[in-house]
């Protein structure tokens, strides 16, 4: 269970980017975080694993208060929080396998990782995750040889290799085409279901979010302006989050979607 209480963030003495945010994510729940650019989505999830230090408030994962840990202690906790990035953020010049195994760094001593002496168990698991994301044949390719969708799958396998309790996902589909976007979202969703993982997914694409998440939180100007089920996301709510616009086409087209799932199956 992730618990966020009165989280606030400002950079130096600038304006508040996050103003008093509180919510809880029970185990196994997938939360979509939507909102306009600059609403604080990216800052929000980076406060959870302390890539950005929050200014005030408390963030608690199970029984550990992440927000009050010293920077040396936070490394231990980051191991349990997998992160997936917008532009994949793979180490381009390393192989696919090395990228997946880099998810284990938090568990290994420097010399072990320096000499690439990964424990056999880690290697077995890495192969299993590569198989799960459908890239088993690409293990020894360099990451920059892969297509966008494949790279994002490597990113997912890297996060899985951490054996995480929580996934933080930052705009996973922003650089992908619509079909690949759906496949990636479906993969993230099914992995979360299999492992009963909770996830927070920052996402621009509202219909895609509504299709694949259990709950949507709308951020606007650093505040939570909506928190509810995807089907409660009415035109009124969208206007509250994004401002005035014609929202009639935003609801996902169900027929199309069924066709896609059949294809994927």
């Amino acid at each position: 269970m992730l618990k966020i209480e009165h989280l606030k963030k400002r950079y130096k003495s600038g304006p508040w980017v996050l103003k008093d945010i509180s919510f809880e994510v029970p185990d196994g729940e997938i939360v979509g975080l939507i909102g306009p650019s600059g609403a604080g989505k990216s800052t929000m999830i980076r406060c959870v694993n302390r890539l950005i230090d929050p200014s005030e408030g408390n963030i608690q994962l199970d029984d550990v208060s992440l927000s009050s840990l010293s920077s040396s202690k936070i490394r231990e906790q980051r191991r349990h929080i997998g992160m997936i990035f917008q532009e994949y953020a793979l180490v381009e010049r390393l192989s696919v396998m090395e990228n997946v195994l880099s998810g284990r760094l938090g568990y290994l001593s420097f010399w072990r990782s320096f000499l690439r002496r990964y424990p056999q168990e880690d290697i077995d698991n890495a192969f299993e995750y590569l198989d799960r994301v459908g890239l088993i044949d690409h293990a020894n390719k360099r990451a920059d040889e892969l297509s966008g969708g494949q790279r994002q799958r490597v990113g997912i396998a890297r996060a899985l290799a951490q054996d995480p309790r929580l996934l933080l996902v930052d705009e996973p589909t922003a650089s992908l085409d619509p079909k690949t976007s759906r496949q990636i979202m479906r993969l993230i969703q099914s992995i979360c279901r299999e492992k009963a993982l909770s996830a927070i997914i920052n996402i621009h694409d509202v219909p895609l979010a509504m299709q694949f998440v259990d709950r949507i939180i709308g951020l606007q100007g650093g505040e939570v302006v909506f928190d509810g089920k995807p089907d409660e996301l009415t035109e009124d709510v969208l206007t509250r989050i994004y401002g005035d616009e014609d929202w009639t086409d935003v609801k996902p087209d169900d027929e199309d979607d069924e066709q896609e799932s059949e294809e994927a199956a």
Binding site: R75, G106, Q162
Partner: peptide, 17 residues
């Protein structure tokens, strides 16, 4: 940032990222 988010130490970040 991605390597830091896995819990890697400073030396590991230098070496891997």
């Amino acid at each position: 940032e991605a390597i830091a988010s896995t819990g890697a130490s400073w030396l590991q970040r230098m070496h891997i990222a």
